[in-house]
């Protein structure tokens, strides 16, 4: 009788410890699933298969943690690379814009001056009929040069407007808004508040490009008659909003197939640790809001500067 009791109690105790091990295991698995990647199960001794299971679990956890860290690193590298590409592209655009404008543009103006001198010489020429024929040609060439200069100006300004680099973002925004209004006859209100300091270059670029894309979208998709833009300098960040009264964007991503406009805006803002939102109200309009903190994020892409 006693032995039977002993046997039963030993069995029950064994059963209980098994239960505890299994409970432990499942609790740990749950914790792990919630993102606590450092957690491990204690490996029970003398439990054969259960011990093995615990060991397996721990080694799986180890592998997953490693994978997770690799992913984080890869993500960081991608972000860094993306920021670098963004900067490099902008820098390239600025360089080409400047070279076109200040290089080719100015050479064309010099040719015009030379032609003017030539034209004067025609006036003192003896063979008047020949001279006037030459003069007509010169005038034609001057007109072609003017066309070429217009072209250079347009491409240069589309690549990267000098107003932004020379006069700063608030002036550029004012100009961009009025040009938009003149070009489209969409009535546009602009409100700029509290801007006293000069705005960091990367932030200026982001604000300018976002506005540019937003206004392009208004022309292409919104069917709006009014746009309201506001730029406010808060204590710690800049906030910019662009609101139209058009048909309103559908309210969930993806917003377009194979399009890069909205994704690009979001990316630019995110790379500066900012916030981006786009909100559509059916037949009432679309509002884009962004906020960019004033301090620049830590520049950590030095490793890529040789790319």
């Amino acid at each position: 009788m006693l032995t039977l009791f002993t046997i039963i109690s030993v069995l029950v105790a064994a059963e209980l410890s098994l239960l505890r091990i299994i409970r432990n295991l499942s609790k740990t698995a749950r914790q792990f699933g919630k993102g606590n990647f450092d957690i491990r199960v204690p490996v029970p001794k003398h439990h054969g298969e259960l011990s093995e299971l615990a060991l397996e679990f721990n080694s799986m956890a180890e592998a997953l943690l490693q994978r997770h860290n690799e992913l984080l690193k890869a993500h960081d590298r991608l972000k860094t690379l993306s920021r670098h590409l963004q900067n490099a592209r902008e820098e390239e655009a600025r360089r080409i814009a400047r070279e076109l404008h200040d290089g080719i543009g100015q050479i064309l103006t010099i040719i015009k001056i030379d032609l003017a001198t030539l034209q004067k010489k025609c006036l003192t020429c003896k063979e008047t009929s020949k001279a006037s024929a030459i003069e007509t040609e010169i005038i034609k060439i001057k007109e072609s040069i003017d066309e070429a200069i217009k072209f250079v100006r347009r491409i240069s300004s589309e690549l990267r407007p000098a107003v932004l680099d020379r006069l700063g973002f608030p002036s550029a925004l004012e100009w961009q808004t009025r040009e938009f209004e003149i070009r489209t006859s969409i009535s546009t209100q602009l409100e700029i508040k509290n801007i006293k300091e000069s705005i960091d270059e990367d932030i200026s670029t982001a604000l300018f490009r976002v506005t540019q894309e937003a206004l392009t979208n208004v022309i292409r998709h919104a069917n709006a008659s009014e746009v309201h833009i506001s730029l406010i300098c808060n204590e710690n960040d800049f906030s910019l909003s662009i609101r139209d009264n058009g048909k309103g964007i559908a309210n969930s991503p993806p917003y377009g197939i194979n399009t890069s406009g909205i994704i690009g805006m979001e990316e630019r803002v995110r790379l500066l640790n900012g916030q981006f939102s786009i909100l559509g109200e059916h037949q009432k309009g679309t509002t884009i809001r962004i906020q960019i903190p004033k301090r620049k994020p830590h520049r950590s892409y030095d490793a890529y500067t040789t790319l």
Partner: peptide, 26 residues
């Protein structure tokens, strides 16, 4: 070389009397 309005306005405000783009110099 700049033809954009903000440059013109800024220059006139700061006291320039005339503003000409370079291709018009001759």
């Amino acid at each position: 070389m700049y033809e954009e309005r903000p440059f013109v306005i800024r220059a006139l405000r700061e006291g320039a009397l005339a503003y000409l783009t370079k291709e018009r110099a001759s």
